[in-house]
Amino acid sequence: MVYLQFLFLVLTSLLYHGSVQAQYSHSKLIISGANAAPKLIPNQVFVDQRLSDSIDSLKIYFGAVDITNIYETGQQRLIVKRKNIIVHSEYDPHKLLNDIALIRLPAEILFDEYIQPAKLPDPDKLYDNEIGVVSGWGIFDRNSWSTPNNLQWFNVTIFPYEECKRLVHKYEGFHASFYPTSNICLKPSQGLTCNGDSGGPLAIRNEDGTTTIVGLTSFGLEDTCEPNMPDIFTRVSSFLQWIKENE
């Protein structure tokens, strides 16, 4: 049988505690998303974090759609201690560089139709203009700032790197004197992530039914979650060697 042994996610979802400037909007919400049905996004997990700058433990939900339903079919939960969190040694909380972490699971999670692994991306592929999926449980309404019980998702288009770089540099006050190739972003649209979905997946659905994770939600350019802004993700392919070394 095949088991899940570790997770990777962006570090901001673990360590952010209000110290980063407002223009780095740590993603919390899926705007203009739709409810996900069970089994639709089996690689998604929910990290329940009662956070300060010092993390004692995390509760991770696997196979969940409704995170309030402890009796939900297919849902499994696991407590993870701080010692199992591997932080990238060169993480920069101000520029949000190397915005990635690994979580070693203290127990094995069995794969089934509700819980499935995702593939790592091709290191030589940019995924420009490909259609992807983003998902999460963050706030979904900019007016009420309310959060859903049900997992939200929407389809997105991956923005070519140079086009995104030019757009990012237009925003006054954003520290974009350089835009690292370790970032990947989405073409601006009415749907977007915003404060709190950090670590969530930017996924490509493959023809064989598998999923490839190409990005991890990192930050946005505004703290008001305005539409038609590019969302910035950690480019997973830039960290394949680091992931291998820390498995």
Rank of each mutant, 00 (worst) to 15 (best):
N69P: 10
N69M: 08
I70L: 12
I70C: 10
Y71R: 13
E72N: 04
E72W: 06
T73Q: 15
T73K: 13
T73P: 04
Q75D: 02
Q75I: 06
Q75F: 06
Q76W: 10
Q76S: 14
Q76P: 10
R77E: 09
L78T: 03
L78D: 02
V80P: 03
K81H: 07
R82I: 00
R82Y: 05
K83C: 04
K83G: 03
N84E: 01
I85L: 01
I85V: 08
I86W: 00
I86L: 09
I86N: 01
H88R: 05
S89V: 10
S89H: 14
E90R: 15
Y91V: 11
P93G: 05
P93C: 06
H94E: 15
K95C: 05
K95I: 09
K95G: 09
L96D: 04
L97K: 10
D99K: 02
I100V: 07
I100G: 09
A101G: 07
I103F: 01
R104Y: 05
P106D: 01
P106A: 05
A107T: 04
A107R: 07
A107E: 11
E108F: 02
I109E: 06
I109H: 02
L110G: 10
L110N: 13
L110T: 15
E113N: 15
E113V: 11
Y114L: 08
Y114W: 13
Y114D: 06
I115D: 07
I115Y: 10
Q116I: 03
Q116G: 11
A118N: 06
K119V: 02
K119Q: 12
L120E: 12
D122T: 02
P123A: 12
P123G: 09
K125L: 13
L126Q: 15
N129E: 12
E130N: 10
E130Y: 03
E130L: 07
I131E: 15
I131R: 13
I131K: 14
V134Y: 02
V134E: 04
S135P: 09
S135R: 06
G136D: 08
G136V: 07
W137L: 01
G138K: 04
I139T: 11
I139D: 08
F140T: 08
F140Q: 10
F140G: 01
D141G: 08
D141V: 00
